[in-house]
Design a protein around this nucleic acid. Structure first.
Length: 447
RNA sequence: GGUGAGGUGGGUGAGUGGCUGAAACCACCGGUUUGCUAAACCGGCGUACGGGUAAUACUGUACCGCGGGUUCGAAUCCCGCCCUCACCGCCA
């Protein structure tokens, strides 16, 4: 998983009104929710049961509280009228009736708040409902490969992994990054830096041609935005925190771009909205280790071009397919061998209903590297974001569907490009990129 | 960093304790009029959570940046916080 690791939410005290699954939906379809979450190996029975029970309590309490408040409002109004008419004594008498009501209201409100908090704490524990096409399974090994494309290159025995190629051709200096910042912050230079810039432009142009509006978002976000896309409160360990200003470095452009639509009600005719954004991404990735983090495989800072769509619920799966085809097209154009994997229930991100991972073949490392993760979140993020739309002729706003994907994450693309295209003369640049790089070969001579 | 002003519905903006969920205007939607368009006129026009209904209708509560307090009653008074804008200083 590149973008949405599954973590367990512990406790969310300030997580007010930022539901994920819709409360009413759970109330109306408790069995369905439990059944669907089984596909994730998630036993939701107890949580759902508690939620429905609390929900009933909450409603009863609200009825009582509303009635008491209604009474109070009535009396207050009467007192106002009495004062205006100069009937001071009657007014004072009316006042006396209010103290008991006041106590009751306070009690109801306290209980109500408490129950609401409990409901929310339970609600945030429930992951998104998986789509019916999500394969059963526990982990990576159960994911379903839906497409393989491109030719696996046969390299000679003295083929080098990308970190050695990067050194040989002076493309990336990992040591220098350590000196300046620390591990996981490489310095790209010369043709390495130019290749990066070329890829960014190539991706952005392709995305724009596919109808995505280009966005340059802030790279630092506030707490509300972190909540909106689900990084907070549970995953704050993954983000760099600027404590002086209480801001966070973005782990993906998904965060600022999706938050464009926080607290927004759209018209159905405006859908789908398509955005693309290039950004540097910052990840603390506390759990990284071993050979998987070698070279460009896993970094604290990397570049990525993201695509985001806000869709009508009836269209969101067509749009997911469209996005998958688009990303596949990028890889095809770069002549990289890739496969598309449908994540199984056990590997599916907390917020996603259906995710396709894209992996490119890294010929020297002899393994698949994830370069994109394209997901439909249905209304899960939208519930959090309060991102809604109004259907034509309908009064009531309903949550929109959100989708996003990488198109694409750079480091592993670079790794694969370097490894797969190495020859005795140097590293060949795919044709489609040459107009962007301005060179078609990386060798040890030219700069 | 210093000083000042201010946060009200999609927008502008009125409102300093009750008759204000909130004037007016603009935008938007529906209608009347009109050869068409425009104008004019009339009406509608927030969100959430409940109750209610087959669904509407209808109805209760809450919401004027956020949180707390005073009061029978708060957009309005008090306290704390957050944010925005303007000017000055510094600066890409």
């Amino acid at each position: 998983m590149y973008c949405c690791a599954v973590t367990f939410i512990k406790f969310a005290p300030s997580f007010k009104g930022k539901n994920m699954l819709n409360l009413k939906f759970i109330q109306d379809n408790p069995e369905l929710v439990v059944e669907k979450l089984k596909r994730r190996n998630f036993d939701a029975e107890k949580v759902v049961e508690s939620i429905t029970e609390l929900y009933r309590k909450k409603n009863k309490l609200q009825g009582q509280a509303d009635q008491a408040k209604s009474e109070m409002n009535r009396i207050s109004k009467e007192i106002g009228i009495l004062f205006r008419e100069g009937k001071k004594e009657e007014a004072n008498a009316a006042k006396e009736r209010t103290s008991e009501l006041k106590d009751n209201i306070k009690q109801f409100d306290q209980q109500f708040t408490e129950i609401e908090r409990m409901v929310t704490d339970l609600l945030v524990q429930l992951p998104n409902l998986p789509h019916d096409s999500v394969p059963l399974g526990k982990g990576e090994e159960d994911n379903e490969v839906v497409t393989s494309a491109g030719e696996i290159p046969q390299l000679t025995e003295n083929a080098l992994p990308h970190w050695e190629l990067a050194q040989k051709y002076n493309l990336i200096d990992f040591e220098l990054g350590v000196k300046i910042t620390g591990a996981g912050f490489p310095v790209y230079r010369g043709k390495g830096a130019q290749l990066q810039r070329a890829l960014i432009n190539f991706f952005l142009n392709e995305n724009r041609n596919a109808g995505y509006e280009e966005i340059q978002p802030p790279l630092v976000v506030n707490e509300d935005s972190g909540f909106g896309t689900g990084q907070l409160p549970d995953k704050e360990g993954q983000m760099y925190h600027v404590t002086a200003d209480n801001l966070y470095l973005i782990p993906t452009a998904e965060v600022p771009v999706t938050n464009i639509y926080r607290d927004v009600i759209l018209d159905a005719k405006d859908l789908p909205l398509k955005n693309t954004a290039y950004s540097s991404c910052f990840r603390r990735e506390a759990g990284s280790y071993g050979k998987d983090v070698r070279g460009l495989n896993r970094l604290h800072q990397f570049d990525k071009v993201e695509i985001v769509q806000v869709a009508h619920p009836e269209k969101s799966y067509d749009i997911l397919n469209e996005m998958v085809n688009h990303v596949a097209g990028l890889l095809k154009k770069m002549e990289l061998p890739y496969r598309i994997v449908r994540l199984c229930g056990g590997d599916l991100g907390f917020t996603s209903s259906l995710t396709y991972d894209f992996e490119v073949w890294s010929a020297a490392q002899q393994k698949w590297l994830e370069v994109s993760s394209v997901s439909n979140f249905e209304s899960f993020q939208a519930n959090r974001l309060k991102l809604r739309f109004r259907d034509e002729g309908s009064k009531k706003p309903q949550p929109a569907h959100t989708l996003n994907g990488s198109a694409l994450a750079l480091p592993r693309i670079v790794a694969a490009l370097l490894e797969n295209n190495q020859t005795d003369e140097g590293i060949k640049i795919p044709k489609v990129l040459v107009p962007y790089t301005g060179f078609d070969l990386i060798d040890s001579v030219s700069k």
